[in-house]
């Protein structure tokens, strides 16, 4: 009941959906669509666990007056306020909920994303300092590709865009395919182990 049944469910679900792939019949498609719907419904309740964790972490900090506890008030208040506005007002354009999304969430996402411009430079500098031959090859190719994609690159060397295209089409593509083939086998292997009940780490050790 505690360990065997979940493994049986996992096995059954896995086999059903392997077989489903080969059956084009509308009933098969309906089962697939219904299963995806079920997964979304199940994940709605899983989100409650996530909320509990967020409130517990920050609530504990506030309760125990840990260093920086004042900041922990912010995510709790923001979460409750925005969530309440969302449920009461709805998620239409023009609501406070959507204004928060457009003027707080989206700009901050874009800003964190844009930090990559700086981090790429520092990552390249760190790789350059490493002075291993492999890091050097990586950097030389990266520099060539970067240089070739800006207007000055082809201006300095006319053949540069062709070289870059060749790098992408042949040696880079070769490594990408090799890794993809290996990853494909790895995914299939791990999936089979999960379905067959060989990989059981997700069960945890409790409730034996």
């Amino acid at each position: 009941m505690k360990r065997t049944f979940p493994l049986v469910i996992c096995f059954g679900g896995g086999i059903i959906f392997i077989i489903q792939f080969f059956i084009p019949h509308p009933v098969s498609k309906a089962i697939y669509d219904e299963a995806l719907n079920w997964l979304i419904i199940v994940s709605v309740f899983a989100f409650a666990i996530a909320l509990e964790s967020l409130f517990r972490v920050h609530g504990t900090k506030i309760k125990r007056r840990k260093p920086g506890w004042g900041f922990s008030v912010i995510p709790l208040v923001a979460c409750i306020t925005v969530g309440a506005f969302g449920i009461i007002q709805g998620v239409r354009e023009g609501t406070v909920f959507m204004k928060v999304f457009h003027y707080i969430t989206v700009p901050m996402s874009a800003t964190v994303f844009s930090l990559l411009a700086f981090y790429m430079a520092s990552a390249a500098f760190r790789a350059f300092r490493a002075t291993t031959t492999r890091a050097t090859v990586l950097l030389i190719v990266a520099f060539l590709v970067m240089f070739g994609r800006v207007p000055i690159g082809p201006f300095v060397w006319k053949g540069l865009p062709d070289i870059i295209e060749w790098i992408f089409m042949y040696p880079s593509m070769a490594a990408t395919r090799g890794i993809a083939l290996g990853v494909g086998l790895g995914i299939i292997g791990t999936s089979l182990k999960i379905i067959l009940g060989i990989e059981k780490g997700w069960l945890g050790g409790g409730g034996k």
Partner: peptide, 8 residues
Amino acid sequence: IAFGAIFG
């Protein structure tokens, strides 16, 4: 080489 290309 592939990593360098992706990086660039």
